[in-house]
Amino acid sequence: MSFQGYLKTIKEKTGKGPEDFQALATEKGFVRDGQLQVKATEVTNWLKADFELGHGHAMAIYALLKGLKDQHSQ
Rank of each mutant, 00 (worst) to 15 (best):
D50P: 07
Q37R: 15
A40D: 15
W46Q: 00
W46Y: 13
N45A: 11
Q35P: 04
T44E: 10
G34S: 07
F21N: 05
A25T: 02
Y62D: 09
L47C: 05
D50A: 11
G29D: 06
F21V: 04
G29N: 10
G56C: 02
D20K: 08
W46V: 02
Q22N: 08
T26W: 07
L47N: 03
L53Y: 04
A60I: 06
A25G: 02
M59D: 01
E42D: 06
A49R: 13
A49S: 13
V31L: 12
T44F: 06
A49L: 09
L24G: 02
L24T: 08
G56Q: 05
G29P: 12
V31H: 09
K39D: 11
E42H: 00
G56L: 01
N45P: 00
F51C: 03
K28V: 03
F51G: 07
D33I: 14
H55K: 02
N45H: 12
D20F: 11
Q37N: 07
G56D: 04
E27T: 14
Q22E: 14
V38F: 04
T41D: 13
G34A: 11
K28P: 06
E27N: 14
K39S: 07
R32A: 14
H57V: 00
T26P: 00
Y62Q: 04
D50R: 12
V31F: 13
G29E: 09
L36H: 13
Q22S: 12
Q37T: 13
A25I: 08
L64D: 00
D50W: 11
T41F: 05
E52L: 04
G29H: 10
G54S: 05
H55Q: 10
L53M: 08
G29I: 10
A25K: 07
K28D: 01
A60P: 08
G29Q: 10
D20G: 06
R32P: 01
T26H: 07
A49I: 00
I61L: 05
H55E: 09
L47G: 05
I61S: 01
F21R: 04
D33Q: 15
E42R: 02
L64C: 09
K28E: 05
K48L: 10
L53D: 01
H55R: 03
T26M: 03
K39H: 12
M59I: 02
R32N: 14
K39P: 06
R32M: 11
I61Q: 00
K48F: 10
E52D: 15
T41G: 04
G56Y: 03
A58C: 06
H55Y: 03
H57R: 13
L53N: 01
D50L: 08
K28A: 10
